[in-house]
Design a protein around this nucleic acid. Sequence first.
DNA 1: GGTTAGCACTCAGGAGGGCTGAGTGCTAAC
DNA 2: GTTAGCACTCAGCCCTCCTGAGTGCTAACC
Lengths: 363, 363
Amino acid sequence: MERDYRLTPRKQDILRAVIRDYILTAEPVGSRTLSKKYDLGLSPATIRNELSDLEDEGLLRQPHTSAGRIPSDHGYRLFVDTLMEREAMPDERRNELERWPLRGEDLSDLLQQAAKLTALLSGCTAMVRPPKRANSRVKFIQLTPVGEQDILMVLLTDQGQVSNQLVRLPSPMALDELVLIANFLNEQLRDKPLDQLTETALNEVNGQLASYQDFLRALLGRVQPPSEGERLYVSHQSYLATQPEFSDVGKVGRLLSLLEREPMMIRVMDAIASNGAEVRVAIGSENPVPDLQECSLVTATYRLGDRVLGELAVIGPTRMHYSQAIAAVELMADRLTAALTELYGLESSPLGGHLGRRRTQGG
Amino acid sequence: MERDYRLTPRKQDILRAVIRDYILTAEPVGSRTLSKKYDLGLSPATIRNELSDLEDEGLLRQPHTSAGRIPSDHGYRLFVDTLMEREAMPDERRNELERWPLRGEDLSDLLQQAAKLTALLSGCTAMVRPPKRANSRVKFIQLTPVGEQDILMVLLTDQGQVSNQLVRLPSPMALDELVLIANFLNEQLRDKPLDQLTETALNEVNGQLASYQDFLRALLGRVQPPSEGERLYVSHQSYLATQPEFSDVGKVGRLLSLLEREPMMIRVMDAIASNGAEVRVAIGSENPVPDLQECSLVTATYRLGDRVLGELAVIGPTRMHYSQAIAAVELMADRLTAALTELYGLESSPLGGHLGRRRTQGG
DNA sequence: GGTTAGCACTCAGGAGGGCTGAGTGCTAAC
DNA sequence: GTTAGCACTCAGCCCTCCTGAGTGCTAACC
């Protein structure tokens, strides 16, 4: 598998030409085409010999005897790793991007925007996995009375998620009580993982607060609804649907169904992405899921500070425009990281000892 | 167009049978099939005569001379209006639904959930249009200091949207100032439409607050990012992609691209939906957009109190399972309305005169 | 008059056959 | 090592034929 491909420069040129042409046309590439279209200075016959060698090495294959060559997954891999020139994002696209600033009202909005821009830049269907709630920790909690018997709870996490819950109180509550509860919650829950809120808090309930136990349970229970796992932000599925390789009856449907199985796609993205900043590519059979054998994924992580929050990816046929896709994913992951840092990147734990000792305006 | 179709009961039975069979099989229905499969007590020849009449009336058509009949858009219309038995949701499905409670952490979550459940119930691709921001009015605004130089602004609207903005202050600000600003904002902006915040607020800036003008502009500018219109929550596009009528090369792609043009789809849904509670159906050529000629949409509105917030819809081929789709859309619109009312349906303006006079816990 | 059997007719879709052209591998000459 | 020439392969297209589902029409039946 991990063969060491030592190719003569000429073979490299030819392989590069084949892949480039195939990415463009989606048609098997023949020796005559290569000789005419690319400036190789070789006759078709010579090219044929080289193509035959490349096929023997497992870098190319023939769909049938009398057809041209198409790249194999190994061929694409070599291309991505060593042959492809990592072309910078074209200026026009970059300018276009400036006109579409990455702004969102909240995290969810931002991620959806990021998916959309990535899709537009790469020309591929794009996906963004949101931060795992299980990894989020409470940053602070605020309770605000709204009317006589309702309160608004605002919970901010260290990963930018904000949870707003409007809750009806079981009975009117004095402001003192509310302050007491809020302070209790902040003390107990600060830096606690989001998926352990209820137990953590309720284990400590005692004395004066015991009578609020049910209320607390209801309040905290709302923060993390028992949804079936995280969702996935997907954009421009039509890009996938218009690829000629998926025009067969049923293929589009199966692929889209796969994308809609969000927990599975999230697992796939997790499996592919690195922990660091670099872009990772999974080509065809390298994918952990059999149904993705004809697809490639390009993934990168986005971060807040030095913590990886989630992944951003594009998916397309193995015959995807890798350099463009990689550039798009890389750029957008950086922009998303920057946007998050600007929006949510407060200095660590700035609330320090102030919490609960300050008084603020009513509301 | 608005013909008065007076059909004999027998013709009605036959039309109903044709449509039911076609919805099931997606194949043109012939007289022999009808005679054998459905308990009409008629020979194929007789049925042929009736079919011929129904075709003359414009309710059926033949794809080609030697094929069976398929319903025309008018035929579907008659079916939906008068022939179809409005079957109740099957019990199993209803039970299934109970196990998937409609819960969400916030509005966006809730709408996405609603789209998903509608799709699962109806077997069609589902869409939910969120409340128009332009129609939302400010319910209350709260500013909370977070650390030395950051504040968290929470803005609650009367349509359930909550906007959280973490903003860095230009310079450290005394708590008094913050209270002043918050009170000012609440007084000025309560019940003001969300898309006029900046002007409304800034026109009134004066005296003591004048120096905060830039800060206020930045703060309020964040509430409504200049996104290209509202987004649309879509679920299970694969249902559309697996319909046999769209298996032609390119059709799926074109349809999905259409769905991705969110502003246009929102306009379409707006155009179809009623202002009241009832479910509306747009069949094939009744759709305002030419590219939707082969599709039907079933829409209903969801509400908060007596205000229409948005629409919920399913889209499928004109050969869709109307009774199931209508039941699903109706049920889910009701559930969504109920969920919203529970989450955000506070009594009107409960904050009354309290605002700004109360003191609450620090945060 | 409504219903039905019988019959001739139509036509999409599949199967089979031949042609074309793009592409190959091999060999021999340069 | 490179190239020209040649025989060979085979997917895709076109044409034709055949089949079967389905029709409309007519005449007989109840």
